[in-house]
């Protein structure tokens, strides 16, 4: 993976989530949820923002100086998916507070990734794991 791809995707995601927050237009958040879902459950290559990156941005940049593993990124997309889904349900069901809060959290993580290249979802894996039932650990 070219590590600049996910960063580009995080920047696009940040803009989309910012627009959702300002307008409260939930179909856009639903679309972002689908984008997260593709990245998390199908793969990063067919993820819409990755495709956009390869078509529009990558040809204008040189070859990447480093490569990145896909597993952390897919996990982060899954975390994003959970928040975006909660946000969509919140807005659509009239629970605007839930919609706003969930979208704000997703935006927070996306901004950290876009601006500081810091993957919140990846680093918090252990924290998330600690609060999930022990049954899952038996695998």
């Amino acid at each position: 993976m070219d590590p600049r791809g996910p960063r580009f995707a995080a920047a696009v995601t940040s803009v989309v989530l910012a627009v959702v927050l300002v307008t409260g237009w939930w179909p856009l958040l639903a679309a972002q949820t689908v984008v997260f879902a593709i990245g998390a459950f199908v793969g990063l290559r067919p993820a819409p923002y990755s495709v956009l990156y390869r078509l529009l941005v990558a040809p204008r940049l040189g070859p990447p100086t480093e490569r990145e593993d896909a597993a952390p990124l897919r996990f982060a997309q899954a975390v994003g998916f959970v928040f975006a889904l909660a946000g969509t349900v919140g807005y659509a069901a009239g629970l605007t507070t839930l919609g706003v809060v969930a979208t704000a959290f997703a935006l927070f993580a996306a901004l950290l990734n876009a601006v500081f290249n810091f993957c919140l979802g990846c680093e918090m894996y252990l924290l998330i794991k600690r609060f999930t039932p022990r049954a899952e650990q038996a695998s």
Binding site: P3, P72, C122, Y125
Partner: peptide
């Protein structure tokens, strides 16, 4: 480390 961690590499 965890599998889901790029800075670990």
């Amino acid at each position: 480390s965890t599998t889901f961690c790029a800075p670990c590499r």
